[in-house]
């Protein structure tokens, strides 16, 4: 196969592999390097120490954004279909609460199900994933079969799921989780989970039929339908995956904090969308890659970590972060325009 391609190239014939283009993520990767270097320089100037040469700081940074990253991988796929998912932050809260209810240890006073203590970790994990999946299924079914805009469907889920997480314990936090459960949030496990999920869905989007159909629907939903794609069923699948990943993020959040609170995950959906968009996913649909989203997630992490390192006031941090997100997209739009004419 490979020799064949080379022969074709040598003969000057066009093939799909004809001329390797630079991956579109390269630009965004350079931006990441640029931002990191700016913090490095500012670090030496104002704090008198290196930003990058501090493994502990980098570890904490990656740990902090892993949860956002897991969500962003699901959200990226939703955005590629031309949709949006605003519910992921609330689904994080909802799954964290409900799963934690099944992960309590008998050595503590228990908020939920006193009889059900010290269950094996697989139970709360399975329940958490299932709840996320069901939330996603509802999103997807609403969008695909009632044709209401994804913005509205997932906005509804965002409000309702947050309501569920508050109602579940009437606002009380769930603490005293088993060691077995909190293990998935310990050490660098959140990062491992994030990267594993990234690899799986990178492969799914690039090399499977699921991926091809996802891009086709985002590029032109009518053409996709005429080409035989069951658009409705596929959308349900994509939203269900996004929901399950938000559920996974909820599990990791609760495990890492060793407690679950109704307010967990607030605004995570926006960080996840920002990570996807910074990474080159187009809100118009049809364009986006997991590698880009991973880099986008790390950029968010570097910014938060860098500002804290420089002791920039939290208020300014948010103001600057917002501006950088918009700037990233503006540059991208401008670059695409330039490529076209």
């Amino acid at each position: 196969m490979n020799t064949n391609v080379t022969a074709n190239d040598a003969a000057g014939h066009g093939t799909a592999h004809g001329r390797r283009k630079l991956p579109p993520e390269l630009n965004i990767f350079l931006v990441l390097i640029g931002i990191a270097l700016v913090f490095e320089v500012l670090g030496w100037l104002f704090v008198g120490q290196s930003f990058l040469m501090n493994p502990q700081r980098l570890t904490i940074m990656i740990l902090q954004v892993s949860v956002i990253g897991i969500i962003a991988i699901g959200v990226t796929q939703v955005i590629i279909t031309g949709g949006i998912d605003l519910s992921s932050g609330s689904v994080v809260g909802m799954t964290a609460m409900i799963a934690a209810g099944f992960a309590q240890s008998s050595t503590w006073s228990r908020v939920m199900y006193p009889a059900l203590a010290d269950l094996p970790a697989i139970v709360p994990i399975a329940i958490g994933l299932l709840i996320g999946l069901v939330a996603g299924l509802i999103n997807g079914a609403l969008i695909a079969y009632t044709r209401i805009p994804p913005f509205i469907a997932t906005l509804g889920m965002m409000v309702s799921a947050r309501g569920v997480s508050k109602w579940y314990t009437k606002g009380q936090p769930v603490s005293g989780l088993t060691d077995q459960f909190t293990f998935i949030g310990s050490g660098i496990w959140p990062v491992v989970i994030f990267l594993a999920v990234a690899v799986i869905f990178h492969i799914a989007l690039r090399y499977t039929r699921y991926g091809k159909f996802t891009y086709a629907i985002g590029a032109n939903v009518q053409a996709a339908r005429v080409s035989g794609i069951n658009v409705e069923a596929h959308l349900v699948k994509v939203y269900a995956i996004a929901g399950a990943l938000a559920g996974l993020a909820g599990l990791v959040t609760a495990a890492r904090a060793q407690t679950a609170q109704a307010g967990m995950g607030v605004m995570y959906e926006l960080d996840a969308i920002a990570a996807a968009v910074i990474g080159g996913t187009s809100l118009a649909g049809g364009v986006g890659r997991i590698t880009g989203t991973v880099i986008g997630t790390v950029i968010l992490g570097v910014m938060t970590s860098g500002f804290t390192f420089l002791r920039v006031d939290a208020y300014y941090q948010e103001i600057i972060k917002g501006a950088i997100i918009v700037a990233a997209v503006v540059t991208d739009v401008y670059r695409q325009k330039k490529r076209k004419t």
Binding site: A16, Y207, T208, R209, Y210, K212, F213, Y215, A216, A219, N220, Q222, A223, A224, V226, S227, G228, I229, G286, V287
Partner: peptide, 29 residues
């Protein structure tokens, strides 16, 4: 409107219908 996946490449445009039941093994293209 109903034919081209405009922002995708020729290969992706050409293969989308046949992927319904051919050239796919265990979900992998």
């Amino acid at each position: 409107d109903t034919g081209c996946l405009l922002i995708l490449d020729i290969l992706e445009n050409m293969q989308i219908a046949v992927l319904q039941d051919k050239f796919v093994k265990n979900g992998f293209v």
